[in-house]
Amino acid sequence: MSNILESVNKRTQLVGQNRLELLLFKLNGRQRFGINVFKVKEVLQCPPLTNLPKLNPNVRGVAHVRGMTISVIDLSAATGGRPIEDIANSFIIISEYNRSIQGFLVSSVERIINMNWEAIMPPPQGAGKLSYLTAVTEIDNELVEILDVEKILDEISPVNTNTSKELDAALTIDRDQHYHIMVIDDSSVARKQIIRALTSLDLQIDTAKDGKEALDKLRAIAKELDDVSTEIPLIISDIEMPEMDGYTLTAEIRDDPKLKNIKVVLHTSLSGVFNQAMVQKVGANDFIAKFNPDELAAAVNKHLSL
């Protein structure tokens, strides 16, 4: 366990080149799951938990860790499985998503592996809308499931997707233009949140579930247009996605003469380890940490009003 903790500490700043590192863990049973090391702050033997009244049933309690009080979510129960029973011998993965810190209760933690995003695939089509998978990959000839953590968190504590009246009054976008933009995110919940947050801008919004799908759509439009930005002036893209991440997508857009004028806003839950230098290197126009509807709408308003 100490080796895993040291690896987490050393590798949480890894960025770029369409690569990621997964921390592997198990819930109940043999099935292995993965979480991006970028989002992991620490891995601990589960400390004593305090029960509080009216907690969501998937929150097993709160823990006091390094001066913070954090909610501990049973990942097995939250994804429809049976609750983890032996809490004292289990672990919590402390992570940062969408500007909040929480602990995920897991039965065991295995190791960290380095992979290419091209090896991370979207979930099978038959998984259905109720699935908690956002991606899958194969390690040691076994399927590893990557959970849609944003969906899990939204079910436990839904985020506010409404922009404020003050922001709506300050918008300068010409709504009569009905600008056409693209939203790219591997989480269906995240895509819906973004669309709801941008309602007041009266946009036409196309979507894609990963960078590869988005790039294919943009290049299909490029067959008809010399400058795709006249059709799609702006995209909002997650960074972590199967097959092609947001950094690589942005670099591909900047390298394509027909796509290079599209404005790119990177919108990601990687708020704790965001690398400004990498965003500038690939040529993104902006970075917004998930999830603040006013900040997102203001950024889109700014870039479409220039």
Rank of each mutant, 00 (worst) to 15 (best):
S2H: 10
I4E: 11
E6G: 05
N9I: 09
Q13P: 00
G16I: 13
L20V: 15
L20I: 14
E21V: 07
L24P: 02
R32Q: 11
F33Y: 14
F33I: 06
G34H: 04
F38H: 14
F38Y: 06
F38W: 11
L44I: 07
P47E: 09
N51C: 14
N51A: 15
R60K: 15
V62H: 04
G80S: 11
G80C: 08
R82H: 13
R82G: 09
P83D: 15
I84A: 12
I87N: 05
S90Y: 08
N98W: 10
S100Y: 04
G103I: 08
L105C: 01
S107T: 12
E110M: 13
R111C: 06
I112W: 09
M115G: 01
N116S: 15
E118W: 05
A119E: 10
A119W: 05
M121H: 12
P122K: 03
Q125M: 09
Q125C: 03
A127W: 14
S131Q: 04
T134V: 12
I139P: 00
I146P: 01
E150L: 03
I152Q: 07
I152P: 00
T161V: 14
N162H: 01
A169L: 13
A170T: 07
T172S: 12
I173K: 07
D174K: 04
D176A: 09
D176F: 08
Q177K: 13
H180Q: 08
D185F: 09
R196M: 11
L203Q: 01
Q204I: 08
A208K: 02
G211V: 11
A214P: 00
L215R: 12
L215A: 07
A220V: 10
I221R: 13
A222G: 13
L225I: 02
D227S: 06
T230S: 06
E231N: 07
P233W: 12
I236K: 01
E240C: 03
E243R: 15
E243H: 11
E243P: 00
G246K: 10
L249Q: 10
A251Q: 15
D256I: 01
L259K: 04
H267N: 14
S269T: 12
L270F: 08
F274P: 00
A284C: 05
P293G: 06
E295T: 04
L296D: 03
N301Q: 02
S305A: 04
